[in-house]
Amino acid sequence: MASVRISELCAEIDAKVHVPGDMDREVERAAVGDLLSFVMGSDADGAAWITVQTHLNVAAVAVLKDIPIIIIASGREPAADLFERCRAEGIALVSAAASVFDTCVKLGRLGISG
């Protein structure tokens, strides 16, 4: 398992950075899910979170799970209030043009595990 800086992770997935958060923080794991209760109930604590949900409640879950970076995949863009909340909470918010699957593959290449 590798520790990867968020800035490095963003470069790998060619992310559009909406909120930088703490780009020097490192993550080892990633989680995928669009059902918020699924992510809440999972062991996603501290992981990078890949989702296609774009609304404000995504930030609420990220805060509760200590998730340092939200990656919105498949070319979707975050809602304005999600952007604002992430900025207030210091959570990195980025989007990726690639699909959820392709984004995961790229993170896997960096040594990030599930």
Binding site: L35, L36, S37, F38, M40, G41, T51, Q53, H55, N57
Partner: peptide, 11 residues
């Protein structure tokens, strides 16, 4: 919005 999956009370 990603709610209503029947996971709330079980969680």
């Amino acid at each position: 919005m990603g709610f209503g999956a029947g996971m709330g009370l079980p969680n």
